[in-house]
Simulated scan of single mutants.
Amino acid sequence: MTNRAVALVVGAFLLVGCCLAGPLLVLTTVNDECVPAPAMSLTSSQPAEQWDAEQLANARTIVSVGAERRISARGQIIALATAMQESGLRNLAGGDRDSIGLFQQRPSQGWGTPSQIGDPVYAAGKFYDKLATIRGWHTMPLTDAAQAVQGSALPNAYAKWEDDATTLGQQLGADPGSAMDCAAITAGMADAVTRHPDGSWPEESCTIRPDPTTGSGCLTPRTLHLVQQATAAGFPKPGCYRVDDHGEHPQGRACDWMMTAGGEASGAQKARGDAMAAWAVANADRLGIRYVIWFRRIWTRSEGWHAYNNPFGGDDPSGWHTNHVHISVE
């Protein structure tokens, strides 16, 4: 196997059963071996003890069914958040129209018979079956992935449960080092750019004018391809070209994806940045990515993730890249 870098966020949206009190980790794989990378933090809004015995039992069922089906921890958290919204993690006998159970699935829409849907194991399995058919769900915002399964009249309602689902999932415990989790991000693989037969990158000039993300300057074709692939994966619009006396931005070879309006990211914003950074590293060979900077860490081909030395000093979120993900291309 070649040096294939597949990154996986085990941060605000991946379950880590072994580290309940400490920071969570990003794992990368090199030659199929999971190794630690940047430390990730988690904001908890509802401790597990605030869920009663019935709710915790149903949550454990959702997580265990996901694990048995080799659904990544991200998928398990999406399922938990969905059940929190739909039923409050309770196996309801009824609901809107003919809705039943943890996920308020409807027999009239083909989810199963009332007795089947009333079984939490069956209901969780059916949720995962549908989730697995959604292309790119691994890199979607949680609420979009949940909505793609549920078809709710309130498509944005799932977002508010992301932190709670992440915290509860972490405390219930899943195996973050398993092969299924290390490979989960591969479903978000980008379309590869052209390379020479020897693997080197063709020379490119800053010929795309104007840069469509800023309306000025220029981008290289590879940078434009990166922007297009990141957009297709569901990440926000970046800012790329800018006039500067250093770095790749003035060459049209770098972009910044903002996760906040300016302040340091936390909670769901931090999780989104974690996902963006993981996706970029997973696709580095396919997109010609030279390096990634996010949350005081930098990833390079030669060293992987390591501490970032902010050349500007101070506590500015922009300088430390705690409000945006920076990606430079070859």
Rank of each mutant, 00 (worst) to 15 (best):
A190H: 01
S178R: 02
P176W: 01
C182D: 04
M189A: 14
E203N: 12
G188V: 08
E203V: 15
G199I: 07
W201P: 07
D181M: 07
T194I: 11
A184H: 02
D181N: 15
A192T: 08
H196D: 08
S178V: 06
S205C: 07
S178A: 14
G177W: 07
G177I: 06
R195W: 04
A183S: 14
P176N: 01
H196E: 09
G188P: 10
A183W: 00
M180T: 13
G199K: 02
G199N: 06
D181Y: 01
E204S: 06
D181S: 06
E204C: 05
P202E: 10
M180S: 10
M180E: 11
T186C: 05
P202R: 01
P197H: 00
G188H: 05
S178L: 02
V193N: 02
W201D: 07
H196W: 03
S200R: 09
P202L: 09
A184E: 09
P202A: 06
A192Q: 05
W201R: 03
I185P: 05
T186I: 05
A190Y: 00
G199V: 11
E204W: 00
T186R: 11
W201T: 05
A190R: 00
G177P: 01
R195S: 13
E203Q: 14
T186E: 11
D191K: 12
A184V: 05
V193R: 12
S200I: 08
S205N: 14
G188I: 04
E204H: 00
V193K: 02
R195F: 11
H196F: 09
A179Q: 04
T186A: 10
G199P: 08
H196Q: 10
D191L: 11
T186M: 02
A179Y: 02
A183E: 12
A179C: 03
P202Y: 01
C182Q: 14
V193P: 06
M180W: 13
T186L: 12
P176F: 02
